[in-house]
Every structure is written in structure tokens, then in C-alpha cells.
Amino acid sequence: MEENGDRTFWEYLTYVSENHSPLDFVLIWDHIDRFLWGTVLTLEITFLALLLGGMLSIPLAIARAYKHPWLNSPIWCFTYFFRGTPLLVQTYLIYYGLAQFDAVRESFLWDPILSSAWWCALIAFTLNTAAYTTEFLRGSIETTPQGEIEAARACGMSPGIAMRRIILPNAFRRALPAYSNEVIFMLHSSVVLSTITLQDILGAGRWLNGRYYLAYEGFITAMVFYMILVFLISRGFKWWEKHWLAHLRQREAEPESGSGKVAV
């Protein structure tokens, strides 16, 4: 009896959803697993690219900031190219472009790496984010207050140690707000994945639209997923900034007496 009533209610819901609701939410719910898998892929490639690109950008940014005699101009060319062209074109160039050459297809790189859409996307995304991160990290390093560097010297730090202990950590801190933009920007750009056959969040939406000849359901669901992710990321950065940039904040209240804090 109970079960029967339950099923009728679900059937009724399905009926309403199919025929009267502006969005067929029951159909979306039936395929929500595809969106969840899409989320895994989107996050996987976005964050792997950010991690690899971020690591790559540190030496590049240092070389740029100190105008390394040989490396400065090649790195400038690299960042100019990757910041000056759309990520979609870069991805196409690596995925469809390279596959045109027999030499590439016969090389040892083809089978495990360049034949796979996943790897092509990771390469394109990594180089792209490396280029952006290099430039704002360079700016951040260049604007290190001279006093901090002098203080490091006075303490007897070698240039290498000063870089590791003083300049880079402070440059990271100052670059953090700009970096949160880069992360969100990368997440948005990751929709490029669906154009090279990968089933990311948008890919799942396009699958749904394609399979059932719909106009909105897949896209709106994808949009909601991206919005949630961006919300979580910006929240995460807020917390991180609060944590890392605490020393730059205006103090909100007088410290309690005896708290041991010393005003600087």
C-alpha cells in the first residue's frame, strides 16, 4: 500500500517534470552521476594543471624578475604567447594540430601521451596557467620592499636563503588575491575539455542535451555545478588570505592585556 502510493507519487512527479515543468528535473536527477563524474574530471585536470603550472612558474618568475641574461627573453616570449592566445586555440593546436603530423604520430610521445585527450588538455592547461602565474609572481617578487632584502642580508643570509625564506614567501602572500582569480579563471576555462571529447561537467550537460534533444537542462545543471565550485573555491581563498595575510590586516580590536602580542 505504502509502496504503491510512493510509486504513484514518483510517477506523478515524473509526469509533471516531463510535461509541465520548465526543466525536466527528474531526468536531470536520473543522470546526476554523469555530472558528478564530470566534476571529478573537471577538478582533476584543473587542479593538476594549477599544481604543475604553479611549480613551473616559480623558477620562470625568478628568472624574469632578475632579468636573467639568457632566459629572460625566451620566457617573455612563452608568457606572451600563452597569455595572448585563447586557451581553446592552444588546446586545439595540441589535440588536433599535432595529430596531423606523421612524425608526431609515430614518435614515442604519441601512444601514452599525445594520443590521449586527457594528456593534451593537461599540457595545454598547465602551460597556460604557468604563463599567467609567472607574470604576476614576477610582479610580486619585483615589488618586494627593499628593506626586507636588506634586513635579510644584514642577518647574514645568502641570496639563495633570502630568496627561500624572505622574498618568495612574501611574494606568495602578496600574489594570493590575484591567484584566487587565476584559479577561478582556470575552472571556467576548463569547459574547453568538453570540446576535445572529455566528459567534464559541461560534457555531461552536452551529453544530456544531445541524448534527449534538450536545450536547457544540461547547461543549467552544469551552470549550477560550476557555481557551487566557484563558491567553494572563493570561500577557501578567503580563509587562506585571512590566515596568511593576517599580519597585513587592520587590527579589529585592541589586544587583550597580557596576550603576549607585540605591536609591530
Binding site: 588536433y96 595529430a99 596531423q100 604520430r105 604519441w110 594520443s115 590521449s116 585527450a117 570540446t195 571529447t197 566528459q199 560534457g203 552536452r206 551529453w207 544531445g210
Partner: peptide, 18 residues
């Protein structure tokens, strides 16, 4: 299943060995 936006892209990737 690998999904493409156009049939021409399917042929390209089939020819490329993907």
C-alpha cells in the same frame, strides 16, 4: 563511447588512431 560535436572530428580522430 567518445562523443564529438561533428562527424568530421570523428573521422579526424579515427584516422589519427585515437
Amino acid at each position: 563511447l567518445v562523443l564529438y560535436a561533428s562527424q568530421e572530428e570523428v573521422w579526424q580522430d579515427l584516422a589519427a588512431g585515437r
